[in-house]
Design a protein around this nucleic acid. Structure first.
Length: 293
DNA sequence: CACTTGACCTGTCCGC
DNA sequence: TGCGGACAGGTCAAGT
């Protein structure tokens, strides 16, 4: 599948921030309540007629701010897409091979936002795990998820020592589960957990408390490296993920272990294996990443 | 309280 | 070819 993590959501944010501000909402169509639980009357009242004033991100969540002082809060979960089309565009910009989405709406479209200039923003979500919610902007950070979520790993004040201390909040669990815990650090999912652990030569089953200071520091460096690199590459597209123009990301062509089971480790040549850790499919080089005793 | 498992969904793939 | 079941994995709720 596809799995929007921090780099994918940030790529969508960058795209939407270049496309949406200034546009005025003319109408909103939505018919799957769990995808957008707000009452239609509130959507009419606080979205229709409002202009978009900014697009932000916190963890894996997108925040589209409106002139009505409300914000459209969106979590893409696994298969969500936010795709923008101008009035006359039938397909996404760029070469057809760069796009996974055809004419919109399609059968995965859960919400369509139409702007006064005829352009539209489509919220597609094959598996319906994602959601949109309209909230007063001053109250957005009061939702449970934001109250608990950890720091942004790419913020300048996020140091390796903070990373270590927050991971140690889960010192008795394995390092993979700790990395995936959004209350420890924001935005890491299955792809970048596996990629960073491979880079640091740490087995995902390793108990957090058994890691040395040097290993924490190395894991921090590798995590920051893969997150930044992936943003440069427009994120990872395996099956569903596309950016705001419908374009695929190219991190997967760089990935060292993720989805590379049975292929040679690019560092030592041993065969990469897929195992199960923290209830997730997990990719490791059994030679570089030794199983803890 | 720390940690694990199941539920939410749909589409794809694998084995019989 | 059809069909059941496993699997994909972000997050919350429920269970141990």
């Amino acid at each position: 599948m596809d799995m929007p993590e921090l780099p994918e959501v940030e790529t969508v944010r960058i795209g939407l921030a270049a496309l949406l501000p200034g546009r005025a909402i003319a109408s909103v169509d939505f018919d799957w309540p769990k995808s957008f639980p707000n009452a239609p009357a509130d959507v009419e009242r606080f979205m229709v007629g409002a202009k978009i004033t900014g697009v932000r991100r916190r963890a894996k969540v997108l925040l589209v701010e409106l002139s009505s002082k409300y914000s459209l809060v969106t979590h893409l979960k696994m298969t969500g897409q936010l795709v923008f089309r101008s009035r006359d565009e039938r397909f996404g910009a760029g070469h057809p091979n760069e796009s996974l989405v055809g004419e919109l709406p399609d059968k995965s479209t859960r919400v369509t936002i139409s702007f006064e200039d005829g352009s539209r923003l489509f919220f597609n979500d094959q598996r319906k795990f994602g959601w949109m919610r309209l909230l007063p902007t001053p109250e957005v950070m009061n939702i449970d998820f934001f109250k608990k979520v950890g720091p942004e790993p790419l913020n300048a004040d996020f140091t390796w020592q903070i990373f270590r201390d927050r991971l140690m909040r889960r010192k008795n669990t394995n390092i993979k589960a700790a990395l995936l815990d959004q209350t420890v650090v924001a935005g890491i999912g299955n792809i970048y957990a596996d990629e960073a652990l491979w880079g640091a030569k740490i087995h995902p089953s390793t108990t957090v408390s058994s890691l040395s200071a040097a290993k924490f520091h190395k894991l921090y460096d590798e995590l920051i490296f893969v997150l930044k690199l992936s943003i440069e590459k427009g994120g990872s597209t395996d099956k569903n993920y596309v950016d705001a123009k419908g374009k695929k990301g190219s991190y997967m062509s760089f990935a060292r272990v993720f989805r590379r089971e049975s292929l040679p480790c690019p560092r030592c040549g041993h065969t990469i294996e897929k195992i199960r850790v923290a209830g997730r499919g997990t990719h490791v080089c059994p030679h570089c990443q030794r199983v803890p005793a």
